[in-house]
Amino acid sequence: KKEGHWDCSICLVRNEPTVSRCIACQNTKS
């Protein structure tokens, strides 16, 4: 897992550190 990346708590997609919403389901970063 790269530094700063985060996994969506709903759909588990891994997102870039620069985005505050999931690219797949638009869930906000927790």
Rank of each mutant, 00 (worst) to 15 (best):
K1I: 14
K1H: 07
K2F: 09
K2I: 15
K2S: 13
K2G: 12
E3S: 15
E3H: 05
H5T: 15
W6G: 09
D7C: 09
D7S: 03
C11R: 10
C11I: 00
L12A: 15
L12R: 10
V13T: 14
V13I: 12
V13F: 07
V13A: 10
V13R: 04
V13E: 07
V13M: 09
V13P: 01
V13C: 12
V13N: 15
V13L: 04
R14C: 10
R14H: 07
R14K: 13
R14Q: 15
R14N: 09
R14V: 11
R14M: 08
R14T: 12
N15H: 08
N15S: 05
N15D: 02
N15G: 00
N15P: 02
E16C: 06
E16H: 06
E16F: 00
E16P: 07
E16M: 01
E16S: 06
E16L: 04
E16V: 02
E16Q: 02
E16T: 02
E16I: 02
P17S: 06
P17Q: 02
P17D: 08
P17Y: 05
P17V: 02
P17C: 05
P17M: 13
P17W: 01
P17A: 02
P17K: 02
P17L: 06
T18G: 05
T18N: 14
T18D: 14
T18S: 13
T18Q: 15
T18H: 08
T18K: 09
T18P: 03
T18M: 05
T18F: 07
V19W: 06
V19I: 08
V19H: 06
V19E: 08
V19M: 15
V19Y: 08
V19F: 04
V19C: 01
S20I: 09
S20H: 13
S20R: 08
S20F: 12
S20Q: 12
S20E: 10
S20W: 03
S20P: 09
S20C: 05
R21P: 10
R21W: 00
R21F: 09
R21Y: 14
R21K: 13
R21N: 15
R21T: 14
R21D: 10
R21H: 08
R21S: 12
R21A: 12
R21Q: 13
R21E: 07
C22L: 01
C22M: 02
C22A: 02
C22V: 03
C22D: 03
C22R: 00
C22N: 12
C22F: 01
I23K: 14
I23S: 14
I23P: 09
I23E: 13
I23V: 12
I23N: 13
I23Q: 14
A24P: 05
A24T: 06
A24H: 14
A24R: 07
A24C: 05
A24E: 09
A24S: 03
A24Q: 07
A24N: 13
A24D: 11
A24L: 10
A24W: 05
A24F: 09
C25L: 00
C25W: 00
C25K: 01
C25M: 02
C25D: 04
C25P: 02
C25R: 01
C25N: 01
C25H: 04
C25Y: 00
Q26K: 12
Q26A: 11
Q26Y: 04
Q26N: 03
Q26I: 04
Q26E: 08
Q26T: 09
Q26S: 10
Q26R: 14
Q26G: 13
N27P: 10
N27F: 06
N27W: 03
N27C: 11
N27V: 03
N27S: 14
N27L: 07
N27G: 08
T28G: 06
T28F: 08
T28H: 13
T28C: 05
T28A: 14
T28E: 13
T28P: 12
K29P: 14
K29Y: 00
K29W: 13
K29L: 09
K29D: 13
K29M: 12
K29T: 15
K29F: 11
S30H: 12
S30F: 06
S30A: 04
S30W: 01
S30P: 11
S30I: 02
S30R: 07
